[in-house]
């Protein structure tokens, strides 16, 4: 699983995987066989039955979203890749989003246009709509991302809970800076609101790309 030839943007993929994640990924690789469903062939993590998030909606502050309540799920023939994070986060979040950007950049356009990245800020106080859009615009093309932001703590907690995710604000340091611990995996949600696969932090972009190709290609969603 780790010795495949990779091109430049992915050269560091393995080096980026922290030691604690490696054993998990090896276990994922070792267990990836079985009854023949798509989920069995994916690199990421799947659940039986899948998590249902079809009812979850949050305001989308991206230019195309206009602040409207928008469901965190893909179009009918597509996927939304949902990530809970924040722009002040210098390490885990940009690593994940950069890997997603690489994966999407290498998909055939016919598939890439059916995928949208939806980031939910877990730090709405500092993540203004402008900050969120500027941040996501760095990684993804216009129209290919949604900037979910609510200042209602309960609404955010309900959305997180539906995904089995959570976040927790840390204490402010001497400069007033604070960090937010948050669920770090990416959730791929189809048009019916089912989470088809989750990629833990550190999943190589190549593995994400191949999962997306499998889900969006012949025999995948939108091809029935």
């Amino acid at each position: 699983m780790f010795d495949r030839v990779v091109r430049r943007p992915r050269m560091r993929s393995l080096a980026r995987v922290p030691a604690v994640v490696l054993p998990v990924m090896i276990l994922i690789a070792a267990s990836g066989c079985g009854s023949g469903g798509v989920g069995d062939e994916l690199n990421g993590m799947t659940r039986t039955p899948p998590t249902e998030v079809g009812r979850v909606a949050l305001p989308d502050e991206s230019p195309g979203g206009g602040g409207r309540q928008t469901r965190l799920r893909g179009e009918e023939d597509g996927l939304m890749l949902v990530y809970f994070g924040y722009t002040f986060c210098p390490d885990v979040c940009p690593t994940t989003l950069a890997d997603l950007g690489v994966a999407l950049g290498e998909l055939p356009e016919e598939q890439a246009r059916r995928v949208k990245v939806g980031m939910v800020t877990v730090d709405p106080e500092r993540d203004t709509p402008k900050a969120l859009n500027g941040y996501l615009g760095h990684f993804f093309a216009p129209g290919r991302f949604a900037s979910f932001r609510t200042t209602d703590d309960d609404e955010l907690a309900r959305a997180e809970s539906a995904f089995g995710a959570s976040s927790k604000l840390g204490k402010a340091d001497r400069h007033g800076n604070y960090e937010v611990a948050h669920t770090a995996q990416v959730f791929a949600v189809d048009g019916t609101g089912q989470v088809l696969v989750e990629w833990p932090f550190g999943t190589p972009s190549e593995d994400i790309r191949s999962d997306l190709e499998r889900l969006l290609g012949d025999g995948g969603i939108g091809s029935a």
Binding site: D40, P49, V92, G164, K168, G170, E179, T183, F201
Partner: peptide
């Protein structure tokens, strides 16, 4: 960066097991 593993074994999990909020959480210190 600090984190919990999102899972402890296997590539799939049974959703009937408690999902446990905080699963796969990462932070930093």
């Amino acid at each position: 960066a600090t984190g919990e593993e999102p899972m402890d074994s296997g590539g799939s999990m049974d959703s009937t097991a408690p999902m446990g909020s905080g699963e796969g959480m990462m932070g930093m210190r």
